[in-house]
Write a protein that binds this DNA or RNA. Structure first.
Lengths: 237, 237
DNA sequence: CGCACAGTTGACGCACATCAACCTGGGTGG
DNA sequence: CCACCCAGGTTGATGTGCGTCAACTGTGCG
């Protein structure tokens, strides 16, 4: 359960990306914490006392149903805050897990629980993060409700390519994809068998290439057309 | 395209519910606006200059795909802010429509666009609204991805009952449901034919009763069990 | 060496979509 | 005031996208 970090340039912990927001967030990081791939960062029901900015690696939010079904509700990339809502509401209604070895920056709850008492620059940064999170959730709802499996997967790939590129972690066409097919299934509300078949369809039709956790988009325009992808919801301003 | 308001007590515009938050919001309302049932409050792509607090009636957020598919991403009840994110981001990436005749309170963008410059009480109120919105979106994602049609509908009914009760618009068991079956379908990612069949199944099994837009839950505990409903995500604090 | 987990493939079944017809009530225009 | 229309709801027949089950592979790890 380790190794994943090896694929990335060995620890070039360049404090992630541009986005003036990041500076405001980083100023408030009091401690860094490393967590292992596939370990749990936050458990549903916890009352967290620190929020975590993701500095390196990927994490995801999810909820389990009593019978074991799982739904992943967000995928987080460097620069994202894993558990802002949980800290602000005082209780987590979702869990957070690590998809890779990660480095997290801890922000004390006191600094954010009341958004009006401190650093206005950071308050604005948190608002923007939060608004973008919401925009992504809405897009995922559309994806889940009104697109078929091929469109869903294509759409997710387009979104991740975009988000990773915007933090300098994807070239124009290639990026690291650390999701297993079974995790992909739990993101998109499908079964892992079906994910497998659709991924192969995407490969056979020459749209993507996927090996060793590196996903390469061979025909960006066509994939975005298949997906019905419009990145406007990700726009950063 | 009118009439809907008639079912409600003829205009007892009691400024909705408890929730100290409401007071902070209401203080900033500069104008009230009435809109007709089924009319559009906000169009995707608009750059809105006012936000709208819903004072009376129901609205919904949605997105259309180019081929006409529609996904409803939120149902809004009195006390909710229809378009906060659109105002704060400067551009709407969703549309808002009215399910009934509504009364909206307008809040100027200047009062909220920068959350750090004004009334801290209202900033906190907006944060709480926003966090709750997000919690609901997450729950909807779980619903869409990992529950079958019967569970989805049951869950939505439980949620609406809860939210309406918390603003004094539902008795323990009954409330007004202003969604057509086709709109329900676009909330849950199903076809309206299937919605119809599952609703009848719920009626035949004595769980709900539905006539003239009044939905009565005949067996609350059983319905919540069927739905796998846990209201903790709606908790207001 | 063997176990566990990710991926792959085929056979089969089901939940849901689609299509089409029909009913109903209320609103509208002649 | 009646005739029409149309949106919403209901029902049956049929099709299909995706799930489930099950077997097999490859690979890394204890």
């Amino acid at each position: 359960m380790a190794t994943q970090t090896a694929d990335l340039k060995p620890f070039d912990a360049r404090p992630p990306p541009r986005l003036g927001d990041m500076e405001a967030l980083l100023r408030t990081v009091v401690r860094r914490r490393a967590v292992k791939s596939r370990s749990q960062v936050l458990r549903e029901g916890d009352k967290p006392r620190v929020a975590h900015v993701l500095l390196h690696g990927h994490t995801f939010r999810y909820r389990m149903l009593v019978d074991g079904r799982r739904q992943i509700t967000a995928i987080l990339v460097p620069g994202d805050v894993c558990d802002l809502e949980a800290v602000m509401r005082g209780r987590a209604d979702y869990s957070v897990g690590a998809l890779t070895d990660c480095i997290l920056g801890e922000i004390p709850a006191e600094r954010i629980a009341d958004p009006t008492t401190h650093d206005p620059e950071m308050t604005r940064a948190l608002w923007r993060r939060s608004l973008r999170d919401q925009a992504i959730s809405r897009e995922w709802l559309v994806n889940m409700g009104r697109r078929d499996a091929l469109e869903k997967i294509s759409n997710l790939i387009c979104e991740l390519r975009f988000r990773l590129a915007s933090v300098g972690l994807a070239s124009d066409i290639a990026f690291q994809l650390h999701l297993t097919q079974s995790e992909l299934a739990d993101v998109l509300g499908l079964s892992c068998v079906h994910i497998n078949r659709v991924l192969q369809q995407l490969r056979r039709s020459g749209l993507i290439q996927l090996s060793d956790g590196t996903l390469t988009v061979l025909d960006v325009a066509l994939l975005e057309a298949v997906a019905g992808f419009d990145p406007i919801y990700l726009r950063l301003a």
